[in-house]
Write a protein that binds this DNA or RNA. Structure first.
Lengths: 149, 149
DNA sequence: CCTAAATCTCTAAAGACTAGAGGTTCAGGA
DNA sequence: TCCTGAACCTCTAGTCTTTAGAGATTTAGG
C-alpha cells in the first residue's frame, strides 16, 4: 500500500503526472482511503514503470495504450507490439540522421564565429540565407516534432 | 507584393502559423490592402525563411527572437548569437546521445521478437522490467522535450 | 491530541501551433 | 461589368503532455 508520493518517487514520475495518467486512462483508478487518498499496490508500480520506460523510449501515449492492452492479453500474437517498436525505431533513426546534420551545421557556425560583429556572424548569415546552408534539412517538420523522446 | 498564401507556400510555413508569428511578434505587421488583407514584400520572406530555418534547427522561439534582434543591430558583437548557437549545439548533442541509446535498445527489442505470443514478447518484457534494460535512459525528461527539431 | 507534511480537486498555464466558424475580399473569366 | 469561387479576415477554442498553484482536507508521527 503506497501513497501517490511514494509511487512518484519510486517510479520517477511526478505526482501530477500520475494523476494525469489516471485521467487519460493509462493508469487505473486505485483504491482510496476513507479520506479519499489514493493507495497503490505493486501492480500499479509495475504498470507505471512500464509507462515511464516506454515514454523514455519515445513511445507515444497512444502506442503505450496499445502495448498495455496487448500486455493484458498475453495470448495474443506479439506482432503488433513488434510493429509498434519497429515503427518507433524508424522514427528514432530519422531523428538521429536529422540531428547529425544539424550538429554539423551548428559546429560549423559556432567554430567560425570568432567574436566579430553581428553583421559578419555566421550564425546569422547561415540562418538568414538558405544558400549558405550546408545540408538539406527539409520541411519534414514532423520528423522530430512531438518530442519527449 | 505577396499574399499570405504565396508567402506560405514559398517559405514552407502554414498560413495560420504566419499569423501566429505576427501575433507573438516574430513577424512584423505587414501592410494591408484596402480590404484589410496582408501584403508581404521580399524582406518578409527572408525573415520568415530565417525563422523557419532556425526552427528547423531546433532553436526556440525565444532564441529566435534574440537572434532577430541581433540581426537588427549588425554592429553589436555576435557573442550572443554565438552563445545561443553553442547552447543549441550542446542540446543537439545530448539529443543525439540519448537517441542512440534508444536506437540500440529498440534494435535489441525488435530483433528478438520472433513472432511469438505477447506473453513472451521482448518488447513488453523490456518495457515492463527495468532490470532487462540495456541502457540507462534516465529521468532527464526535458533533454528531448519540446521537439520540433 | 496536535501539527506539519502530504494529499485532494480544480483551474490555468506552458509552447507552438492548428482547426473551425462565420463573414469579407480578390482575381479571372463570361 | 458582373459573378463566382478561392483565398482571405478575425476570433475562439482545441491540441498534447504535462506542470504549477490555490485552497481545503487527511494522514502519520511524536
Amino acid at each position: 500500500m503506497m501513497t501517490i508520493g511514494k509511487l512518484s518517487v519510486t517510479a520517477g514520475v511526478k505526482v501530477p503526472t500520475i494523476r494525469y495518467y489516471e485521467d487519460i486512462g493509462l493508469m487505473p483508478e486505485p483504491e482510496r482511503t476513507e479520506g479519499n487518498q489514493r493507495r497503490y499496490v505493486r501492480a500499479h508500480l509495475e504498470r507505471l514503470n512500464f509507462i515511464r520506460h516506454a515514454r523514455d523510449l519515445g513511445f507515444s501515449v497512444e502506442a503505450i495504450r496499445d502495448l498495455l492492452s496487448l500486455q493484458a492479453t498475453p495470448d495474443a500474437p506479439c506482432h503488433d507490439a513488434d510493429r509498434i517498436a519497429a515503427d518507433n525505431l524508424a522514427d528514432v533513426r530519422a531523428k538521429i540522421a536529422r540531428l547529425k546534420k544539424l550538429e554539423a551545421e551548428l559546429e560549423h557556425i559556432v567554430s567560425e564565429c570568432a567574436g566579430g560583429r553581428a553583421g559578419e556572424c555566421n550564425v546569422l548569415a547561415t540562418l538568414a540565407d538558405h544558400a549558405l546552408c550546408m545540408t538539406n534539412h527539409g520541411h519534414a517538420n514532423n520528423a522530430l516534432d512531438n518530442g519527449s523522446v
